[in-house]
């Protein structure tokens, strides 16, 4: 698998490393994907890197690569953001993968080997829910709201009604709420706030987890929040050019 720039892979790693310590990457002709629970079993993370993300991609036989995210991150940090990354996994020798970083002028090339692990990852079946509410908004705006309100209180309540979407945090000595209306003024798609809902709903989540989730803002300029009563929220970052996505399912808090 060859990526034109290591930046995408670095951002993906940064988006999951606080939540997932080790995980299986499933490789098949469609691309590379992973699904993992955080240690607290409160968030399910799904990453999909489609063939479209790669400069070249070939997968003769489906393979599962057990990867420890810590050393993987250390190796990736050795790659310049603009350097080409080639990941090779041999079917005959499945105890490691090779990573090669090359910069454009090829005046520099670095090669790494990463030992693979045997991880008995249980896959969770995520039902295709029809959502009671969906919000799409700039990922940077969602990140700022979450980071700001997480300072106010550890519980983040998200309410969707005809007023728009209201984010509320409650602490011991302060409380804050921010209301977003669907934006029709701005024309740039990536700046718009769109809200659709079938019935009003209000749910509460752990702000520290939502903070970790917003790190994926580096991957996509927009984020989609999908909510349904008594269901984990799905926070989805779609990468452009159908390159793939990262989805977080965060379990709610019970009233």
């Amino acid at each position: 698998a060859r990526l034109p720039r290591s930046a995408v892979l670095k951002k993906i790693l940064d988006s999951v490393k606080d939540l997932v310590k080790e995980t299986n990457w499933d490789c098949n002709e469609e691309g590379m994907s992973m699904q993992a629970l955080d240690t607290g079993r409160i968030v399910l993370v799904e990453v999909m890197l489609r063939e479209a993300a790669f400069e070249s991609y070939a997968c003769e036989v489906p393979m599962t690569l057990g990867i420890d995210m810590e050393p993987f991150g250390k190796v990736l940090r050795c790659a310049g953001g603009d350097e080409k990354v080639t990941i090779k996994a041999s079917r005959n020798d499945q105890d490691h993968i090779e990573l090669v970083f090359e910069n454009e002028e090829k005046e520099r090339m670095s090669a790494f080997e990463l030992k693979l692990m045997d991880i008995d990852g249980e896959h969770m079946a995520v039902p295709d829910a029809e959502w009671g509410a969906e919000i799409s908004m700039p990922s940077s705006e969602f990140k700022k709201i979450v980071m700001d309100l997480a300072e106010i209180g550890s519980d983040l309540t998200i309410a969707v009604s005809k007023l728009g979407v209201t984010f509320t945090a409650q602490g011991n000595n302060c409380k804050g709420s921010m209301v977003l209306q669907p934006s029709t003024a701005v024309d740039k798609k990536s700046e718009q706030v769109a809200i659709s809902f079938t019935e009003p709903l209000e749910m509460t989540f752990a702000a520290p987890y939502m903070k970790m989730i917003t790190k994926a803002a580096a991957l996509s300029s927009t984020v989609t929040l999908s909510l349904d009563e008594a269901c984990p929220i799905c926070v989805r970052y779609e990468m452009e050019d159908n390159a793939g996505h990262i989805k977080y399912y965060l379990a709610p808090k019970e009233d």
């Binding site: 629970l37 399910l44 079946a125 379990a251």
Partner: peptide, 14 residues
């Protein structure tokens, strides 16, 4: 204080 629920309450192993 609202109680944190776990993912396994909503999603079953595949």
């Amino acid at each position: 204080k609202p109680r944190q629920l776990l993912i396994s309450r909503f999603f079953a192993p595949a």
